[in-house]
Write a protein that binds this DNA or RNA. Structure first.
Length: 280
DNA sequence: ATCCTATCCTGGCTGC
DNA sequence: TGCAGCCAGGATAGGA
């Protein structure tokens, strides 16, 4: 599922194809995708605008728009489970899951494709409040290992749900939380305030290492969903230590990887590398 | 403060 | 082969 590394990959690969393009028109095939504004207002809002920048915050993609050189709002995009964003020749076939399509100049089209329809592709005049409840970026120097350790101590929550909480730390999802916890030797049910400082700092380092490596490999593709905007799968799934490896040997110690449910989320771990806390 | 449940969706899987 | 039923999963809202 698209998490920080996948979203970052999409932004990087779409950027050269989208920046500088003018939006000639919009077609909405699934109204909910464009949010409360509705398809007609959405189309009127963005027609004639030019995409001048594309960037990522948490798992959101933002496209800055201008009209005649003046700021004119943003596209606010979230891929959720199965969303894809790609710039194609206008003549190509986007398939049956295209939810929003923007006609661009120079014979191109920007497509938002989303099998499960959870994704969003909205227009916002401004971004006030949008990232109000989003926590620090793990790779942007927003915080260091020592600060992260203090933040862990300030909460009394299980590590897995805490790391999934976007208001605590931005960008992690089910895959990279499981991977980072295994690399740090921490059980997903451990309480955040009971992790010793050095181990907490190591967790931060492992989160960063996991994300950086995954970006380098253009994300993870283990099912039919996530693909880069070029249509290629990422390759980080080959590096998974625990995610989806239940019943197979832990790469570090050989014990069988198990899958449990934590906060209604499938959770993969090795009970030797990640010993259970005394108090559950 | 923290946890739990429901909601939004559909392809793919299991079991009969 | 067909079909019903279940499941995953990011974010959010509402209730405990």
């Amino acid at each position: 599922m698209p998490e920080l590394p996948e979203v970052e990959t999409v932004v990087r690969l779409v950027r050269p194809k989208l920046v500088g393009r003018r939006i000639e028109g919009a077609t909405v095939y699934w109204p909910r995708t464009v949010g409360d504004q509705g398809p007609d207002a959405f189309a009127r809002s963005i027609e004639g605008l030019r995409a001048v920048r594309i960037w990522r915050r948490a798992k959101y993609i933002v496209v800055d728009l201008e009209r005649r050189g003046r700021a004119a709002g943003h596209l606010l995009i979230h891929l959720r489970m199965t969303g894809r964003l790609q710039v194609d020749p206008a003549s190509s076939d986007g398939g049956k899951y295209v939810r929003v399509e923007l006609a661009l100049d120079r014979g191109k089209t920007l497509r938002f494709i989303d099998v499960r329809k959870f994704g969003r592709f909205e227009y916002r005049e401004d971004l006030t409040g949008v990232f109000e409840r989003i926590g620090p970026e793990p790779l942007d120097g927003d915080l260091d290992a020592a600060q992260f350790s203090r933040e862990l101590r300030a909460r009394q929550r299980q590590l897995k749900p805490l790391l999934l909480d976007q208001s605590f730390l931005a960008g992690l999802g089910n895959i990279y939380v499981d991977e980072a916890l295994h690399r740090a030797g921490l059980h997903p049910l451990r309480r955040s305030d009971r992790v010793p400082g050095p181990r907490a700092r190591r967790l931060f380092d492992e989160i960063q290492a996991t994300l950086r490596e995954a970006i380098r490999r253009e994300g993870s593709s283990f099912d039919t969903f996530y693909r880069t905007p070029e249509g290629q799968p990422g390759s980080y799934q080959h590096q998974f230590r625990v995610y989806g490896r239940q019943g197979r040997a832990c790469r570090a110690c050989g014990r069988t990887v198990i899958k449990i449910v934590v906060g209604q989320r499938g959770t993969h771990l090795c009970t030797r590398c990640q010993p259970a806390p005394r108090v559950l």
